[in-house]
Design a protein around this nucleic acid. Structure first.
Length: 346
DNA sequence: AACTCGGGGCA
DNA sequence: TGCCCAGAGTT
């Protein structure tokens, strides 16, 4: 099918069936498009919506975000995952704010900003500036891989280049904002990974995957790899004032910059740590082991409930350790499994 | 239990 | 340039 017919069908479908009521589709601005696109990079729409609204509420524009402390940005982000995104978001806000609060409208300048790659830059240019730039997010990738029956994992450079080329050729000069939104909507609502609704799809007649009966095999899945298991113990330590001990994690790595429970590789080491730090630990109860899966390993964790008679010692501050009351902890924003552990106990 | 999702960073 | 890293939700 010629490109212009492809575009026509996509846009006609969008006019009737596209989503137009998402929060970031109202009062469209580069700031709102950028914020939503970064949140949507690895997270689904339904999860993002409350976070987006809260961010807009607290940081109505890029200058407000730039002047906020990184900690408060991380706090608002807690639960969304991939916390480096929040750090990059804040960094980019300060760069744009220093530039008078004006977003770049050039591809290279956008890509130079932390947390903005080719696809996010394309989304900002097409949706916020109505310029004709392609995107290649997961939705668009799925629609194109199926329609043109592109076989091979998109993580391979060759396949990725092929898909980018198709996306570029298919992006119209006019109405590129609507087209971009339409392709994302099509992938999100009809051309889904499982149970795609081809009968309602505006381009199913020319879809090679449909014609060749390959819809369920495309796009080609990422090669699976066995991932290791890491075993740890989380210490839920309570002092006589009914406070709990949390530590601030290092800025990089898992749960970077977030508050968490102290982590040990054995129960014995919990006791050794207590003795070493003049804070003898008395274990009360060992909870049932649970599994939390990251992309590259399983974290099998066991929470240990314990108490201590000591509330202060000289190593705490240097190690980022702070006693918190349960009520305070709930307002901190914690990694999902830590939040779960504490919610189930208190 | 497997799958999904862009970008940064490093060898 | 090709790999590794990073979390929570859905299926």
């Amino acid at each position: 099918m010629p490109t212009d017919q492809f575009q026509q069908k996509i846009l006609a479908w969008f006019d009737l069936n596209g989503r137009k009521d998402l929060p970031w589709q109202q009062a469209i601005s580069p700031y709102r498009v950028w914020l939503s696109e970064v949140m949507l990079q690895q997270t689904q729409v339904s999860t993002v919506i409350p976070y987006f609204n809260e961010f807009i509420d607290q940081f109505p524009d890029v200058n407000a975000l730039a002047s906020a402390p990184l900690d408060s940005v991380l706090h608002l982000w807690a639960g969304l995952g991939y916390y480096a995104r929040a750090r990059n978001l804040h960094k980019t806000a300060t760069l744009i704010s220093a530039n008078g609060g004006v977003f770049p409208d050039q591809l290279d300048a956008l890509i130079a900003l932390p947390g903005i790659g080719r696809s996010t830059a394309g989304a900002i240019l097409s949706i916020a500036f109505n310029k004709s730039y392609p995107i290649l997010d997961a939705n668009v990738r799925r629609v194109l891989a199926r329609h043109y029956a592109i076989v091979g994992w998109s993580g391979h450079t060759k396949i990725s280049n092929q898909l980018w080329e198709i996306s570029t050729l298919n992006t119209p000069v006019k109405r590129s904002a609507d087209y971009t939104q339409a392709m994302m909507d099509l992938g999100a609502t009809l051309c889904t990974r499982s149970k795609p609704q081809c009968n309602q799809c505006p381009i199913s007649a020319s879809c090679l995957a449909k014609i060749e009966n390959k819809v369920h095999f495309l796009p080609t899945a990422k090669p699976t790899k066995a991932i290791p298991v890491k075993n740890i113990f989380f210490l839920i330590l309570q002092n006589p004032q009914q406070q709990f001990l949390l530590e601030k994690r290092p800025a990089s790595g898992i749960w970077g910059g977030l508050w968490s429970l102290l982590e040990f590789d054995s129960i014995e080491n919990i006791h050794l740590w207590g003795l070493d730090n003049n804070m003898p630990v008395q274990a009360i109860k060992t909870l049932k082991p649970q599994r939390h899966t990251f992309s590259h390993y399983h974290l099998d964790y066991t929470a240990v409930l314990a108490k201590t008679k000591m509330s202060v010692n000289n190593v705490m501050e240097a190690n980022g350790l702070v006693w918190y009351k349960v009520g305070q902890i709930k307002s901190l924003g914690l990694p999902a499994p830590i939040k779960k552990i504490l919610q189930e106990q208190y």
